[in-house]
Amino acid sequence: MAKIDKSTSVLDVPISKKRVFTASNRAGWLFASPWIIGLVMFYAVPLVSSIYFSFTNYSILQPGEYIGLQNYKELFKDDLFWKSIYNTIYFAVYFVPLSIIFGVALAMILNMKVKGMAIYRTIFFLPTLVPHVALAVLWMWLLNPGFGLVNGMLELVGIQGPNWLGSVAWSKPSLILMSLWGIGQAVIIYLAGLADISDEYYEAADVDGANWFQKTINITIPLLTPVIFFNLVMGAIGAFQQFTLPYTMTAGQGTPANSLTFYVMYLYDNGFKFFKMGYASAMAWILFIIIMALTAVIFMTSKRWVHYQGE
């Protein structure tokens, strides 16, 4: 058997070893081929096609013609387009910070050394297993102004409950409330982040006489920022893609007065209800640019407030 030096190139390897290398390479590509084919067919091809369709009047039923930037020009003149952007930004601005605040607070409570804590953690995680359609139906009953449980409980303390889903002022806050009910998945991630913080930091703080609040502000929150950063990025992306809950609650109408017409809902309507696939493709790429820009801003600012252990 010939001895191969570290500096030997692949071309200098004996023929028998070349064949072994090629065979293993082919086997790897063969096993990976189902995933690669799926990636190309269901992601890469539609992605590239949508770029072209955004410059056409393609309508699914007809091939369409190239119209340049006409779709983008019409979008900026579309009042409902701007309304959907406003609704989506409103939801993201309120839901993402609230989900982080409540998620961290809930995770810290569930991280306490209490008997039966595993049961409590399971209870708070269960809402994430409920399908969004079932979740929407459940909350439509709870928030019903006439016989809903929420307004019924408010009446017990002398408060007249609002028309949650039938009021322009309360429709989006109602949706935020529903979404906060399902933050159990983020709470599990925060719990994992809390478990990763070394006890040595808290022991040193105890020696210095720090109280619970001081340890939370100076140890827990700073060392939990990598997890907060991850949930911030994922939460922002998810908020801009809000679809199932408002679509189910309003049967795709976005009522009342389009206050629940979110960006992805309007995109879906244009593509699959009005068959304006070129118009919808243009909306999809605008959404892509917005999400990428927002994610880039979060990443650029993360160096100022994300702290890692050992740094």
Rank of each mutant, 00 (worst) to 15 (best):
N163F: 11
L129A: 13
L175E: 08
I188C: 05
A136F: 10
P145R: 01
L194E: 04
E155K: 15
W181N: 09
S174N: 08
P145Y: 07
D196G: 14
T122A: 11
S171E: 02
L143S: 03
W170E: 07
M178C: 10
Y190P: 06
A136D: 11
P145E: 07
L194N: 00
I176V: 15
S171C: 08
A192V: 08
P173E: 05
L149A: 14
V187C: 06
L180Y: 10
L126G: 03
L177G: 14
G148A: 02
V133G: 09
T122K: 01
M178Y: 08
W164G: 06
L135W: 09
L142M: 15
G193Q: 05
V157H: 09
W170C: 06
L156H: 08
V157P: 11
L126I: 13
V168N: 11
A192K: 04
L180G: 08
W181D: 09
V137S: 12
T128V: 13
P127H: 00
P131R: 05
F125I: 03
L129S: 12
A186P: 04
S167H: 06
A192F: 02
A136T: 10
V130C: 11
A169C: 00
N144H: 08
A186N: 14
W139Y: 11
W139Q: 03
L191T: 03
Y190F: 13
G152A: 00
V137L: 15
G148N: 06
N151K: 07
A192H: 00
I189F: 12
G161T: 11
D196S: 15
L175C: 03
G166V: 06
G193N: 05
S179D: 10
V130F: 02
H132P: 13
G158P: 11
P145I: 04
A195F: 06
V133H: 05
P162I: 05
A169Q: 14
K172T: 14
N163S: 13
V150D: 05
A136L: 09
L149Q: 12
E155S: 15
L135Q: 14
G148I: 02
V168G: 08
V130T: 13
P173T: 07
P162R: 01
V133P: 12
L143Y: 14
M153F: 15
G193S: 03
P173L: 03
Q185W: 14
P162Y: 05
Q185V: 09
G148Y: 00
L180E: 10
L129Y: 10
F125G: 02
F147H: 13
A192S: 13
I188R: 09
A169S: 13
P127E: 03
I183M: 09
I176T: 13
M140R: 12
V187I: 15
K172W: 06
A195V: 12
T128E: 06
G182W: 07
D196V: 07
P131W: 10
N144C: 01
G161D: 11
L154C: 08
G184H: 05
L138R: 01
L135P: 10
F124L: 00
T122D: 00
G193L: 03
I123W: 02
L154H: 10
L142T: 06
L135M: 14
G166E: 04
F124S: 00
G152T: 01
G166K: 05
S179K: 11
L165K: 04
N151A: 06
L135C: 13
I189K: 02
N151Y: 07
M178V: 15
M178D: 02
